[in-house]
Write a protein that binds this DNA or RNA. Structure first.
Lengths: 257, 257
DNA sequence: CTTCGAATGCGTCGTTATGACACAATGCTA
DNA sequence: TAGCATTGTGTCATAACGACGCATTCGAAG
């Protein structure tokens, strides 16, 4: 799927190699400069940006397909990736947009083409470390870049709804999972972690209570280093204690904000 | 789908009327005699019981299909019904069992039959009031009855995994949703409500703390009646305050056990 | 009719979690 | 070296929570 030719082959052959009716879309979250970002793609000739998605090979597990799509777009594997909802409205697709897009792209597809059939899509959301990602459009005809969560207004088909649902899920999970690990670099400061939570929850939190709570979970290791360079008191660096972190992942964190 | 003839037609015609690749299975919970129950079905000639499931009509929303299946089996609509997970393993089906089942049933299906293709199934779970349910097998060749959660050991294909996942989800949701409404009759006692929670969570709770918490949510109305007849002090009857109940559904309940 | 057992209604107490806030320490800059 | 912004740490009142005591009320046994 890395070259135009392969892309065309896939378009022609999809019915033979993919599981029919089923697609998946990934909401890939990153965190950069105190902003929550989402990775979006765009076909050259299309007006709207879209979530990176794909189809499932006939002998491929659904989760593996999601992992594959993620790897294709970010170069990363082995990260937090989780299905969160299935979107199965009968009218969620917009065939006309599809066709005209391909036409602009120089590909003609007939009215019975498999891409124009109805698809039920499984939404996955991923948490990735922004700096580790190499954004990779899946063919020369596409762009691929990070968007600030708040910039996004309209997306391809029902992708905005999918994104919103992913955000809701993320916020719910925040109270049960120690989410920082996949979104932050290995070493980070407490204020950085707090900014992450504040950004996701879209509200400000008390600095001291946040610290008390976070350290109370017992999943953080405070390093002896500090982050110098800021014009103020140097904050300690932290990293996750992976043993306790995994334990917490299973049991879930208590309480809520 | 109520007569054998229609059933055979569906088997023959499925590819034309159903969305390919996609199925759904319902985990229908009920509560009776202080036990958590699940509604299961069985083809006459099959060894294993299964979750009631179905397929999605080509122009039917996924959620509507789930509602339809539920209605077919329980006679109830307008109840708590929620998707909780998609099961998309490539090898989750067992073609041989399928074929031999139909053979025993007097229906021959070829090796390329649509029913033998790979399906990705969406798991739904429902909470229904036990007494309101009229168990309805979907064709004369099937049984349909309630099972105690703890009796169930092995099910058709991966249905046991689906059931377990539904139970996990139910337990998680218990802390966020006032779940009693759909599982209990309109009027119920506090001990009954407590038994429901204890059964789902599979642990005993303190009587007095439970009452304090439940009433603290402010979603219960205590009636002036009591339930006489038990050989002890008559407990008050309660019912849900629907206005506050719906409000709580949106906001979620705080804390956890 | 009285007594008894068992379950329910209601309240207390100590511990812990939570939200709000004060003050000292630190690192850069002027 | 003084000043300022930010971080580290602690306090205090309040609310939530778990464990438990005691009186009340129902049916049943005598």
């Amino acid at each position: 799927m890395t070259q135009q030719k392969t892309f065309r082959e896939v378009i022609a052959d999809g019915e033979g190699i993919f599981q029919p009716s089923v697609s998946l879309d990934c909401v890939i979250f990153g965190f950069h400069e105190n902003e929550l970002k989402v990775l979006l793609i765009k076909a050259k000739s299309t007006d709207h940006w879209a979530l990176p998605g794909g189809f499932v090979f006939k002998d491929e597990d659904l989760d593996d397909a999601a992992t594959r799509v993620l790897k294709e777009r970010t170069g990363i594997n082995d990260i937090f990736l989780q299905q969160f909802h299935v979107f199965g409205s009968a009218k969620r697709s917009d065939w006309n947009i599809h066709r005209s897009n391909f036409k602009k792209d120089g590909i003609e597809i007939g009215p019975d083409h498999w891409l124009l059939k109805r698809f039920i899509t499984v939404g996955y959301y991923a948490l990735v470390e922004f700096a580790h990602v190499i954004t990779t459009p899946d063919s020369s005809s596409e762009e691929c870049r990070w968007w600030d969560i708040n910039e996004i207004e309209e997306l391809f088909m029902d992708h905005k709804q999918i994104l919103d649902k992913a955000l809701d899920t993320l916020r719910l999970q925040l109270n049960h999972l120690p989410i920082g690990y996949n979104l932050l670099p290995q070493k980070f400061t407490m204020p950085e972690l707090q900014k992450l939570y504040e950004t996701i929850l879209n509200k400000t939190l008390d600095r001291r209570n946040f610290q008390r709570r976070m350290t109370g979970f017992g999943i953080l290791k405070r390093l002896k280093e500090t982050r110098k360079g800021g014009a103020h008191r140097a904050p300690f660096l932290y990293s996750f204690d992976m043993r306790k972190y995994r334990k917490a992942l299973k049991q879930g964190l208590h309480g809520g904000w």
